[in-house]
Design a protein around this nucleic acid. Structure first.
Lengths: 215, 215
DNA sequence: ATCTTCTCTCAGAGCTTTCTCAGACTGCGG
DNA sequence: CCGCAGTCTGAGAAAGCTCTGAGAGAAGAT
C-alpha cells in the first residue's frame, strides 16, 4: 500500500497518468473498462492475485502490456507469470529507474495482438498447456528450458543479448563468470534441432546473443 | 433480511435492476422464469439453502452466473459450492465494493454454456450428481478427490500450478511445507489410471503443477 | 463406544534439473 | 595461416522435485 502510493507519485512525476487499484478485482475491472498504455501488476494482491488478474485479462483478449512485480525470485513464479501472459518482470526490491526503463520499453512495443499460443515457423509454444511442439511432434522441456524458449519465441527475429536473457530468464544481472545461457541454448538445440535435422532454429550472433529464426 | 435490503439498495444505486427472493423456492422460481444477468445467492436461506438452489438451477440447465454468499469460510462450504455449480464466492462479512467488482466480472463473463457434465476423453465428471465415470465405469471418489478432479477437468489442457490447486481446492495460500496436492494426485491416479491401464490421465509438469490431458 | 472413512503429514527413494567447469572448437582480424 | 576471444559441449556434483507407503488424527456412521 505504501509502495503503490510511492510508485504512483513517482510515475506521475515522470508525466504518466496513473490509476490505482488496490485489489485484484478492482484492477481487472479498471483494466477492462479503460484502454491503458500499460499495467503494472503486483503479484501480491488481496483477493485475486496478480497471476489470476493477468490470466483473466488475456482470456478477455486484452493485450495491454503487463509488467509484473514479484517479491519472490523463483523460477516457478517467473514461469507462472509468463504463463499467465505477463510481458515483463521485476523482482522486488527494484530500482525505480529500472522500472521506468522497462515500462518505457513495454509501452513503446505497444499492445501486441498476441495469441495465447506462439507460432514461429513449425515451432509452437503453448504457455497455458506448457507444451512445445515442432512439426506437430511434442518436445519435452524442463522449466528453465521452457522459460528460455518462450522468451526467445516472444522476440523471434530479434537478437536477444545474453545479458537480457540472464536478466529475464535467470534474474541475474552480472554477466561475468557464467555461461548458463550458452549451456541452455545448447540444450534447446539438442532437443529442438538435432532430432529434426532442419534449418537451425536458434542462431548465434557472435559477440551479442541469440536469435530465434523467424518463419 | 436486513442484509438483503441493503444489498438491493446498493445495487440499485449502481444502476442494476434487482429482484428479491426471500426463500430458496422463491429464488428458484424467479431465476427460472426470467433471464437474469446474474444471481447473488446466500447459502443461509429458509427452506432450500443456497447450495440446493444452485444445484437445481444447474440441473435445469440454467447457466446464469451465480455469486454465492457464505458466512462460514470452510473448505467444505467452498467445495459444496463448487459442486453445486456456483461461479464465485464471497465470505461474509464482505466489502460491498468487492462484491460489485466480482459481480461485474461475472456479468462480463456472461452465462457460460457450461455443460453440467464435463467430458474429457472417456472421463465424465458430473458435478451435480457428484459422479465420475471412466469409459462408462463409475469410480468412487472422496469429496476432496472429487473437488481436485473437477478443478483439473475444468482446466483440462492447461497446466494448473500446484499453488493454484492449493488455493482453489484447499483454500491455502502458502505453498510451503505440504505436499497434499501430490498425494491427492496420487490417489486420483490410483483410482483413475491403474484400473484402466490407458494413456495417463494426469500429467505432471515438473516444477509447475499438473494437467489433465485433453481429449 | 467402536469402526470406518477421510484427510493430511512425514520421510525416504529415485529421479530430474540446474549449473559449473574445463577443454574442444570456431570464426574473424591481422 | 595464426592466435584469440567467443562459443559449444560433455561430465559430474549438488540441489531440488515428485512419488509413495505408513500412520496419526478427525469426522462420521452404526
Amino acid at each position: 500500500m505504501k509502495l503503490v502510493r510511492a510508485l504512483q507519485r513517482g510515475l506521475q512525476r515522470e508525466g504518466y497518468v496513473v490509476d490505482l487499484a488496490v485489489t485484484g478485482d478492482e484492477a481487472l475491472a479498471q483494466a477492462s473498462s479503460y484502454d491503458y498504455d500499460a499495467v503494472v501488476l503486483d503479484v501480491m494482491l488481496p483477493g485475486k492475485d496478480g497471476f489470476a488478474v493477468c490470466k483473466e485479462l488475456r482470456r478477455d483478449e486484452q493485450w495491454v502490456p503487463v509488467l509484473m512485480l514479484t517479491a519472490r525470485d523463483h523460477v516457478k513464479d517467473r514461469i507462472r507469470g509468463l504463463d499467465a501472459g505477463a510481458d515483463d518482470y521485476l523482482v522486488k526490491p527494484f530500482d525505480f529507474g529500472e522500472m521506468l526503463a522497462r515500462l518505457r520499453a513495454l509501452i513503446r512495443r505497444g499492445p501486441s495482438e498476441r495469441p495465447a499460443v506462439i507460432e514461429v515457423g513449425d515451432l509452437r509454444v503453448d504457455p497455458a498447456a506448457h507444451v512445445v511442439t515442432r512439426g506437430g511432434r511434442e518436445v519435452e522441456l524442463t522449466p528453465r528450458e521452457f522459460a528460455l524458449l518462450l522468451f526467445l519465441a516472444r522476440h523471434a527475429g530479434e537478437v536477444v543479448p545474453r545479458i537480457e536473457l540472464l536478466e529475464h530468464v535467470w534474474d541475474e544481472s552480472d554477466e561475468g563468470s557464467t555461461n548458463v545461457v550458452d549451456v541452455y541454448v545448447g540444450y534447446l538445440r539438442k532437443k529442438l534441432e538435432r532430432p529434426f535435422r532442419r534449418r537451425p532454429l536458434i542462431r548465434t550472433v557472435r559477440g551479442v546473443g541469440f536469435m530465434l529464426e523467424p518463419k
